[in-house]
Simulated assay, not measured.
Amino acid sequence: MELQEGDQVDLVIGHQTNLGYTVLINEEFEALLYNSDIFKDIEEGSRTIGYVKKVREDGKIDVSLRPQGFRNVIDEDANTVLRKLEEKGFLMLTDKSSPESIKFRLQMSKKAFKRAIGNLYKEKIIELQEDRIVLIK
């Protein structure tokens, strides 16, 4: 199999299962997109870009809608938070916000959100307040 972890691939969304969605990679390989990796609305039959998350020993493939690799994910998530902050100058979320609230506002997991704001805080781009995150001008 020529696919490797991290490869960008074309996906066709298949049917939903208890674990997630079956997908077709490059119209050739079957794979699974887990529910835990879905942070946007998807529909059966739709096409999207995905990334090979894991090629298992049994030949099965797991995919993600997000680039793989720590730096890729951090940068993408930090940019998402930054774009939202640039709209109003603040975001009514904190590291104590519920996962549902974060997913609703930013389409990312709480873990990804915390990594992103940690990165932005270290770069002195944001200020963390008790009830919000503020963009430093």
Rank of each mutant, 00 (worst) to 15 (best):
P67W: 10
P67G: 11
Q68R: 10
Q68D: 04
Q68S: 05
Q68I: 14
G69T: 07
G69Y: 01
G69L: 05
G69C: 05
G69V: 09
F70S: 11
F70L: 12
R71C: 04
R71A: 12
R71L: 13
R71Y: 10
N72C: 08
N72M: 07
N72P: 03
N72W: 01
N72F: 10
V73Q: 13
V73T: 11
V73Y: 03
V73M: 11
V73G: 06
I74R: 13
I74C: 00
D75Y: 11
D75P: 04
D75C: 04
D75E: 14
D75K: 15
D75W: 02
D75N: 14
D75T: 12
E76Q: 14
E76N: 12
E76F: 11
E76P: 06
D77F: 08
D77M: 14
D77K: 11
D77C: 11
D77W: 02
D77A: 14
A78E: 07
A78R: 07
A78M: 00
A78W: 00
N79R: 14
N79V: 05
T80K: 15
T80E: 12
T80F: 02
T80S: 13
T80M: 13
T80A: 14
V81R: 03
V81S: 05
V81M: 06
L82E: 09
L82D: 02
L82A: 02
L82K: 09
R83Y: 07
R83V: 03
R83N: 12
R83D: 12
K84F: 03
K84Y: 03
K84L: 07
K84A: 10
K84C: 00
K84H: 07
L85P: 06
L85F: 02
L85C: 01
L85H: 02
E86A: 06
E87F: 12
K88P: 07
K88M: 05
K88F: 09
G89L: 01
G89D: 05
F90Q: 06
F90N: 02
L91G: 08
L91D: 04
L91R: 04
L91E: 03
L91T: 07
L91I: 03
L91H: 08
M92Y: 11
M92T: 10
L93Y: 01
L93K: 06
L93S: 00
T94W: 05
T94C: 04
D95E: 15
K96E: 14
K96W: 09
S97V: 04
S98V: 05
P99N: 11
P99G: 11
P99V: 03
P99D: 07
E100Y: 01
E100W: 05
E100T: 08
E100G: 13
S101G: 08
S101Y: 08
I102R: 08
I102T: 00
I102P: 00
I102M: 00
I102V: 13
K103R: 15
K103V: 05
F104H: 13
R105P: 06
